[in-house]
């Protein structure tokens, strides 16, 4: 959802979203194939098996930092919206701490509980977004999406890359996949879920363009919220921003939890801790602190999420590390035939 708060906006942004979804799908498919190679290990264990102990450490550190960093950015972004829109007088830190505590608790309970909570919450989030989008189709002007591809392919690709960067989150499944039930179809589940998320994103962006037009959307920091504002069903179901708030809280909370969990798995592996939960609290505190001190103001955060910064940052995690592992694996495989089986 943060994708809706940054980047260029023009009427073709939904095409960019589709592009991003496709890129994310391919990307995650590759990741899933690679994860299949690990045979029940995390990426770190796999690296060690390949004999690259030092790079395992490095990757472990990168994943830890990445997890905590993204968690803190998400915390901040989320809290900023709360303060801007709903709670003017409340200090930012309250939302950061409460959400981080909840995420800490859930991450502490382990992947099984995380999955169960997600199973419960996801239908609500997705159902809520779809309902909002559908409700927004009865106002607005479908002609808003024209002209198609007005400014050529460049802005679309740029937008696609921006949004793809947010799908980069899937890279943390490198750490989580081994924990999943083996009956889950590893190769299809990740790309399919990314594609589903991408479709939802396309639908959402489309509704925004359709509903409030890209020129109003472009002025707004939270265009989706503006769309929600406009909703009026039979002049009774109006002013539903509160429900959007609920959706927003739930989805951000899940995201933060996953990243904290991934960071703790990574750290636990790094220091060969028997119980990864020992590092969870320090990591959470770190994320909370980072969320507060990383950015002076919201505009810095928005600047950070621009493609020139964020997409490059994500590419390192999302492309460089898998590529490195793939090369390493290919080299080792050639050296020791039969290992691939």
């Amino acid at each position: 959802m943060p994708v809706l708060t940054v980047g260029d906006r023009y009427q073709d942004v939904w095409i960019a979203a589709a592009l991003a979804a496709a890129m994310g799908g391919i990307n995650s498919f590759l990741l899933a194939i690679m994860a299949g190679l690990y045979r029940g290990q995390t990426v770190l264990g796999f690296l060690e098996e390949l004999g690259a102990g030092i790079s395992a450490k490095v990757v472990g550190v990168v994943f830890t930092v990445f997890g905590v960093h993204v968690a803190s950015i998400t915390l901040r972004d989320f809290a900023e919206l709360m303060v801007t829109y709903f709670y003017e007088e409340t200090p930012l830190i309250v939302f950061i701490i409460v959400t981080a505590l909840l995420a800490y608790w859930l991450a502490y309970m382990g992947i099984e509980v995380i999955v169960r909570v997600a199973q419960f919450v996801f239908p609500l989030i997705i159902g809520g977004i779809i309902l909002i989008n559908l409700a927004s189709l009865n106002f607005g002007d479908p002609n808003n999406i024209f002209p198609l591809i007005e400014k050529g392919a460049a802005p679309i690709i740029r937008g696609g890359v921006t949004q793809w960067a947010f799908f980069g989150d899937v890279v943390i499944w490198f750490l989580l996949l081994p924990h999943l039930n083996s009956s889950v179809k590893k190769y299809t589940f990740l790309p399919l879920s990314v594609l589903a998320a991408g479709l939802l994103l396309v639908f959402t962006v489309f509704s925004i363009i359709w509903g409030i037009g890209n020129r109003v959307a472009v002025m707004r920091i939270y265009p989706y919220l503006s769309l929600v504002e406009e909703i009026s069903v039979v002049e009774f179901i109006e002013r539903v921003e509160g429900f959007f708030l609920l959706i927003w809280v739930a989805s951000n909370f899940l995201k933060i939890t996953l990243f904290l969990y991934a960071a703790s798995v990574s750290t636990g592996h790094l220091f060969r801790l028997g119980d990864r939960r020992a590092v969870l609290l320090p990591l959470t505190i770190l994320a909370v602190n980072l969320a507060v001190i990383l950015f002076d103001n919201y505009l810095q955060l928005r600047y950070f999420l621009r493609p020139e910064v964020y997409a490059v940052y994500m590419s390192i995690i999302q492309l460089a590390i898998p590529a490195y592992i793939a090369v390493l694996w290919l080299v080792r495989k050639r050296r020791t035939p039969g290992m691939a089986e």
């Binding site: 409030i212 037009g213 109003v216 002025m219």
Partner: peptide, 8 residues
């Protein structure tokens, strides 16, 4: 919304 759209 409509007013803004037309203005911009």
């Amino acid at each position: 919304r409509r007013f803004s759209e037309a203005l911009v």
